[in-house]
């Protein structure tokens, strides 16, 4: 028998909507075709609330809250697309673009990139901040895949999929702040990783050109993410 969960009613952008108490604002917004931009969130992976793109305003709440990590409450009034939020989202994207090499014209993921899509959709057409030009590395030692840390947005999807779905926990993050970067195992060459199963899940969940398939030409770097929801559901079912 299904676990009982209470139904809550609320308003999102003036529309009356409802959902279960264990659903997030993002879940309910999507169910009702209300668009809230996301980057670190991916169905099938745990929620981290890191990218802050899905921040929304709730009437009477002092703080902005991430739609992905906030459960719905009875009577709450959510605003997902105020001018303030639009400004914040554009600025967050500007910061991301200023942080690494996000020059689309020379990227293999050009045309198949979630960061690029977000910039277009949210109207971020220029970056007001100087590029931080961090010294980051490219690792091509893996037989089939490449990690280009210059194009990484540190969403940690690869870390989560490897740990939560594949169960290998090859990826993790090393360093702090702008020096943070994804590393295989204890910061060894990816090709030498004894834990990597070469399953390619990390590549498929990567929103940008940071994790790509070797030799695949630009324009064909299409990521497949449909597998994720099935796999995570199977995992959950097996773990009871």
């Amino acid at each position: 028998m299904a676990v009982r969960s209470r139904i809550k009613t609320l308003k999102i952008d003036g529309r009356d909507v409802s959902g279960h108490e264990d659903e997030s604002i993002l879940d309910i917004a999507r169910e009702n075709n209300i668009y809230i931009p996301t980057l670190c969130q991916l169905d099938g992976l745990s929620i981290v609330g890191a990218c802050r793109l899905c921040l929304v305003e709730v009437q009477g709440w002092r703080k902005l809250v991430p739609a992905c990590a906030t459960y719905i409450e009875e009577g709450m009034e959510v605003f997902t697309n105020t001018e303030r939020l639009q400004n914040y989202r554009r600025m967050i994207l500007e910061l991301l673009f200023s942080e690494g090499n996000h020059i689309c014209a020379i990227c293999v993921s050009n045309g198949n990139c979630e960061l690029q899509d977000l910039a277009q959709k949210l109207g971020m057409d220029h970056v007001r901040f100087p590029n931080l030009q961090p010294v980051r590395t490219v690792d091509m030692t893996h037989e089939r895949f490449v990690v280009d840390r210059n194009r990484c947005v540190l969403c940690a999807r690869c870390v989560r999929v490897c740990d939560e779905i594949e169960g290998a926990h090859t990826w993790d993050i090393k360093g702090r702040g702008v020096d943070a970067r994804v590393i295989p195992d204890l910061d060894i060459d990816w090709g030498d990783s004894p834990t990597c199963t070469s399953c390619g899940k990390c590549v498929n969940v990567c929103p940008t050109g940071a994790l790509v398939v070797k030799g695949q030409p630009s324009g064909e770097m299409i990521k497949r993410q449909e597998f994720l929801v099935y796999l995570s559901e199977i995992r959950e079912a097996r773990n009871g």
Binding site: A50, R52, S98, L154, R176, G177, V178, D179, A180
Partner: peptide, 11 residues
Amino acid sequence: ESCGKCIPCRV
């Protein structure tokens, strides 16, 4: 000292 997890603080 920023951990680097969220973008507004990191960048």
